[in-house]
Design a protein around this nucleic acid. Sequence first.
DNA 1: CTGTTAGCGCGTTCAA
DNA 2: TTGAACGCGCTAACAG
Lengths: 340, 340
Amino acid sequence: MYTCTITCGHIIVKEHSVNKGKVTRNAVAQMAGVSTATVSRVYNDPASVSPVKRELVLEAAGDLGYRPNKQASSLRRGTTGTVMLLECGKPRRSYYWKQLRLFNWFYADIIHGLQEVFERSMYTLQLKRVEKPGDIDRREIQTDGIIGFDIDLQEEADAAAGLGIPYILCHHTASFQGNFRCATDNVRGGALQAEYLFEQGCGRVCCLTGYLAEVYPHRERLEGFLGRSKELGLQAEVIDYAMEDPKGAAAVLRRGMQFDGIAAVNDLTLMNILQEISLDGVPMIGYDAVPIRHLLSRTFPSVDPRPREIYHRSAQLLITRLSGGEIPELQVIPPVISLG
Amino acid sequence: MYTCTITCGHIIVKEHSVNKGKVTRNAVAQMAGVSTATVSRVYNDPASVSPVKRELVLEAAGDLGYRPNKQASSLRRGTTGTVMLLECGKPRRSYYWKQLRLFNWFYADIIHGLQEVFERSMYTLQLKRVEKPGDIDRREIQTDGIIGFDIDLQEEADAAAGLGIPYILCHHTASFQGNFRCATDNVRGGALQAEYLFEQGCGRVCCLTGYLAEVYPHRERLEGFLGRSKELGLQAEVIDYAMEDPKGAAAVLRRGMQFDGIAAVNDLTLMNILQEISLDGVPMIGYDAVPIRHLLSRTFPSVDPRPREIYHRSAQLLITRLSGGEIPELQVIPPVISLG
DNA sequence: CTGTTAGCGCGTTCAA
DNA sequence: TTGAACGCGCTAACAG
């Protein structure tokens, strides 16, 4: 450890130790002619500092290129300064695997949506992935807040909420009462599908779906579709094995073409079916708004659950909560139709 | 601040301050009957501690559930304890946008590959995204190491390397000499395509490509394809507007079908073309190994650049470098053919 | 091989 | 409204 001299503009700042060229609070304080505590206050409680000194500090900080040291402030504050995106694998959906991998197309979008919020805050985003909810090790989880990624099982919700850390459960969590959550409205999404087909002049519609027993969001979407269809006077039927057996579903559709409008529980199902059967002239609508649907010779509209907005909003909610603010237990991001 | 007593097993550990229930080095030291420095050494330089005391410490740490505090160690060490994945937007590729968004299908894979390495290290992964290389603010970049994401422009390479922070430039960086990089071998990938078609018994092959002037990797892939084709005695031609005008390319293919084998610069191009023309019986091979190609009625093999491996390896390289180890300037991850 | 000790940069009391 | 002083948990130099 030795003494070095840092020159900045016309001011000479003496440092006790080398500090690797980093600019500390001490340098700013000296340059602004105030105490280090005042510099600290400018960043943590600006209102408690007189406007004159505040300006002085900010000017000096600007000149020196000062950035508060996150590790130091976290250490002092006794927090980690991080929030964690907690992601559980979906081992019970191996049958679904190929498609799930595709769904990751919005992963980058989500991450960037989160980043956008957190990089302006005092929090740093951490990523954590476990195979299953039971693998979460409380001692590994050192963070101030948790964003539960793509949660659609009670087991996952309980595991994330049970850590004793402020959290927001995201995506398919509208019905997990008693938890803080930011969710899509699958029921409304299904209703949107019915409305779209109705507006297209359809009368006898069909919903292609599957895995109803295992996948809760599928049930919600179907419920919304059937409910709204009834209200609108649409005659609606369900082919509930369309995901497991697209060829079979296509065969049914081909046999007689008794439907004049088709909704699918997700775009991939519809894309699969369109590989088997040409549905020219029949209005169709998918779900998830995957951009790849435009790769087909025939494209179609789709319900967009707006994942980016869900996570963007959940980041804001978490920050509010961590700052001691009040947040609603449930924040719903309504889906929209993407005509693509 | 007040004194509290922590009981652990049969040992009573007295703490000076509350510490929010966290277990510190002091508690471990006291329980193990050693000094705090010894505890520290067990984690940072285990070889310098006698086996007996090491065991004592590890046992106490295990009982107490001790985890070293990252912010504190980083602060003391004068490092950030983080590495950053630095991502530049590709504004000059707006024409490419729809497809680029699709390419993000492997983003989650990459992130998880990186996580896998870093979560076992002392480093935490940070994410940073800028619109263009010029937007990188040196003062914003507070990290110990950088992984340059998807770098394929000299400008990006220079920006990342010029920060004065250890870095690895990833993906399409094989030719950026004078930098540390972990790259794919696009030339080899193109050669693989030629070899595949040769093995299928083709004689007159065709490469569907595009944006050759703007996108360097496309030129590399083509170079590899043409070079290896020549060596194998394949007659090869190029349709270099296949991405801009898939319908036009399809028309050329349709007109006479003078080719008995087809390679494409990427899977999406091939998928687009397959929407226009049925190429039953003609061997084809794509590039990028996007899983969605299986959605088509006809699937095809593809060259897999193994992005997950690229980033996984680059994480290891960066850690080695940060630990003072020697690493090669260029590490190539060879592509493989994915039959899908 | 081990213990003692001095800060890393900061937030936060406590007095003034 | 301001400044002095303390210590968060840890690493590394030094002395033994």
